[in-house]
Nucleic acid binder design. Sequence first.
RNA 1: GCCCCCGUAGCUCAACUGGAUAGAGCAUCGGAUUUCUAAUCCGAGGGUUGGGGGUUCGAGUCCCUCCGGGGGCGCCA
Length: 550
Amino acid sequence: MQKTLKERIKQIIERKVKEIYGQDVDVQLTPPRSEEYGDYATNLAFLLSKKLRKPPSEIASEFASALSEELRPIAEINVVSGFINLQIRMPILRELVYEIVHSHQSDYGESDVGGGRRVLVEFVSANPTGPLNVVSARAATVGDSLVRIMRKSGYNADAEYYVNDAGGQIRALGESVAWRLGERDEPPQDGYLGEYLIEIAKKLRDQGVSREDYGKAAAELILKSQLQSLERFGVKFDSVVRESEIRASGLVDEVFNRLKELGLVSKASDLPPQLASEYRDRNSLVLRTDLIDKNEKPRVLIRSNGEPTYFMVDLAYHYNKFQRGYEWVIDLWGPDHHGYIPRMRAGLKGLGLLENGRFDVMIVQQVNLIRDGKRVVMSKRKGEFFTMDQLIDAVGVDAARFFFLLRSANAHLDFDIDLARKLSSDNPVYYVQYVHARISSLMEHASEKGVSFDDAELEQLGLKEERTLMKKLLYFPDVVSNSARRMEPHLIPHYLLDLAGEFHNYYQKHRIVDTENKALSGARLLLAEAVRTVVHNGLELIGVSAPSRM
RNA sequence: GCCCCCGUAGCUCAACUGGAUAGAGCAUCGGAUUUCUAAUCCGAGGGUUGGGGGUUCGAGUCCCUCCGGGGGCGCCA
């Protein structure tokens, strides 16, 4: 894969630093705060200043002159108060526009920062006890977009769904079905009272499922409908793993024994007295998490009745992820699980999986449902929630996805139901989609007038607004790879809003199709087409459609 | 009591992980189209980045402390 311009420049600068100062520096190239400084800036001189014991401004001007020769064909260099700024030359930008349209197309935005690294992103993983709610919709949007963005950036990324189809909740689900079928008078204590179970109960009865299998069978039906809702939302999983499979595979024993061999397991009663006192079940077997992470306390793996805890099974599951060859494991969890991160990390570290592997948890913060200005407490058991399907019905997939990605995942989100309905007209997604539709229609208009970007004379592109647009197009692959590295999908919609704004501005100020000047029109059409391509590719990354007409 | 997240313009949020004069949208006010989509554009006002201290060439970003909001602290899953 071809390196992006930024990567090429970075390499040249690093080589030059090595050559002149004998230092290995990871050169950071960022867009400067203000446009007037140029297109890329580096703080290199400040970093070198300490090592070389020289003032930054001196290093900057000295290095800049050495560098400017090397970079002459690509960029112009200027130094302002210690910062080394690069202004990309027009021919390079014009060539970029040409390439986006003629050679990159849907590939534009790709990079190889991922280097083919295998990544597994697990998300949503809702309990199979009811329909998905808006929180799951948010997690689905973030997770799915992240996978798309990572793939674009050269990671070999897969999406996985984990199903907790074992344990007490499944029993409760089964008994709730029994209640709906009149096989018991009262719903169970932790029962699921939502009306969606009526339909499911009928189905199970018609299939002749026996009472002890109600829970498992209901869970499978619910899982199926969850995956259908997700697919409707544009989210597909590469794999679905069930807790019951992990339990049946012998993996739990394998991981437990490994931990034991590593000396990380002990009986609760054998712990030092100050730790032991915490454990009710003194015969349970605990993981010495405290030996791995001093802020953690030992955690029960196996109860005295021989039953593994959820943590034990989850640890086995995560062990399995690495076993399958993934080098980077990313989980999206709700905020109620954040206390769980250190113990999982400690467990994986204890197993030696983090020496070469990487484990990250992205906390997708909660969504508060607001109705009539007041917070609604969502409860799946009571059947009170706004489902993902209702959300899609109310605002559509595009508006919902864009809305969720507009803020970073670790920020709380108030989700106003009335706002959701209003969103169908107010959502900024239309601002971005409108650019795509506008350019599409522009192309039609141009072809009616007999003008095409094949007539383009690239030198005609030189307006300030044109340069600004070209620069924005140049940044796209950087934005995508940053978004992947930082696990922050929200950078994409923000970039698209920016780009859209620049285009609308340009369009308003300058006429594009002019039959009297085909060379100029062609050039502007080519630029417009490049913008359309990038908008299209960007929307694709977040699973939002790019309409030709609005 | 301990831990995590958040606090930035009236509101909702950015700020490329320590960079230059903290930016957008909404809302408010004022303007723009006989020509390519007005779901658009241009302009104006609006800030002690919750308070205080520290680290350094440089802090919204890192450290300490206090204040406020949310969440967590099962041998549930």
